[in-house]
Every structure is written in structure tokens, then in C-alpha cells.
């Protein structure tokens, strides 16, 4: 991988710099960490052991030195390939359903059951409708999302893509890949789209 080969020299330099602090100079802490992230974990319910393995971009975005601008561009181009546009060309569902999905943070933990529909967890990190006071601040406020940004084709497609795979626009984004990682279904993403854009949605009040 090109992205990885760019990273190597920077990491090697970092390890050389910290080696002086360690009695076991030359130890490859990155390799030992990867081994530990396997050996310390066990499967529990739907939380399988393979969740401990890293995808290429997850690995690049976990390094103590962030990926270079060129490596980021490459990740974004690769991730853009994963975005699936709606089969019927319709981007919007029902904002009322979207609100439920935005409110729910359930799903994919080892205490959740297989087959249950997941929440989007939007409010964990974003402000949306002004009447919901319990919102997180890890992501930006999305209050008046559609009203401020309009709903031309470019904005609609950008938002769909961002929901499907946020890494297509920002390689190391903190936001989960709602579509690509099968957190939400296509129908659920349409509902969230309506919640963001519909003029009647509380988000745009």
C-alpha cells in the first residue's frame, strides 16, 4: 500500500527517538500493541473477535503520527468507492422516522442482539433539533442543517455520501460509516436525510 509506505519512515524516526527511554531498545511497540489488541479480547455475543483487526485506514488513522496529506487523499478516494447511491434515485424518507433513528444510540454492542435494527446515535455527538437539550459536542451542531445549506443536488449528494461513509470526505473522521459499515440500512439513511433537510423537520426550525 502506498499509504503505508509513506508512513513507515516517520514511524521509524519516532521509534528511534523514544528508544532512548526504553531499556528494551528497538522493541517494536506497534507490533506488540497489535498482538495485545488480539490476545486481550474475547468474542461475546455479536461482538466477534474479528472486530479487533484493523482496516487499512483504521490502522493509518491510529498511528501516533497522523497520515500525510497525500495518504489522506488516497484513503478518501478509496472510501469514496464504497458509497452506494439510492437504487431508486430517491434520497429522502420520513423525517419522523429519522428523528427516532437520530435519538437512538442502540446497537452493535455485545449486550445487543443480532437482527435488531440499530440507532444512528446522532445526538450522542451532534446538536440537531433545538428542543432536544441532551446532545453531544464531539461533532459540529447540525441545527438548521437544510435551512442553512439549501438542498441543491450537490449538497444532497454530499450529505448522503457523508452519512454512508464519512471517511470519503475526511480520511480520519471520528464519524462512523453508517452505510458502509452496515450500521444503518439504506431506508434508515433516507429517513435521517429527511430529518436533516425537510423544511417541516424540527431540525430546520
Amino acid at each position: 500500500m502506498k499509504a503505508v509506505s509513506i508512513l513507515r519512515p516517520a514511524l521509524a524516526a519516532l521509534l528511534a527517538a523514544t528508544a532512548g527511554l526504553s531499556a528494551a531498545a528497538g522493541e517494536d511497540y506497534d507490533a506488540q500493541t497489535r498482538e495485545m489488541m488480539q490476545s486481550s479480547f474475547k468474542e461475546n455475543g455479536i461482538a466477534s473477535k474479528y472486530r479487533q483487526l484493523q482496516l487499512d485506514f483504521q490502522k493509518a488513522c491510529s498511528a501516533l503520527v497522523p497520515p500525510s496529506a497525500a495518504a489522506m487523499k488516497q484513503i478518501e478516494a478509496e472510501q469514496m468507492q464504497t458509497v452506494r447511491w439510492p437504487d431508486d434515485g430517491k434520497f429522502f424518507g420520513d423525517w419522523k422516522e429519522g428523528e427516532k433513528i437520530a435519538q437512538s444510540g442502540r446497537g452493535l454492542t455485545w449486550t445487543d442482539k443480532a437482527g435488531e435494527s440499530n440507532g444512528g446515535g446522532c445526538y450522542n455527538c451532534h446538536q440537531l433539533a433545538p428542543q432536544e437539550l441532551s446532545f453531544g459536542t464531539i461533532g459540529p451542531s447540525l441545527h438548521r442543517y437544510g435551512k442553512l445549506r439549501g438542498s441543491d443536488e450537490g449538497m444532497v449528494k454530499y450529505t448522503w455520501g457523508k452519512l454512508w461513509n464519512a471517511k470519503a470526505y475526511n480520511a480520519c473522521s471520528q464519524m462512523p460509516r453508517m452505510g458502509d459499515a452496515h450500521i444503518l440500512s439504506e431506508a434508515q439513511i433516507k429517513h435521517v436525510m429527511a430529518y436533516l433537510f425537510d423544511p417541516a423537520s424540527p431540525v430546520n426550525q
Partner: peptide, 18 residues
Amino acid sequence: RMYELGKRAFYYRSGPMD
């Protein structure tokens, strides 16, 4: 050594939500 591994584990992204 455990400090170095812990620091790397802290930044280790994986799983369905990255």
C-alpha cells in the same frame, strides 16, 4: 513498556464504528 503499549492502545481504531 506497558506505558508505550497503553498509549498505542488508546489510539487503536477498530470495529464497526471505527
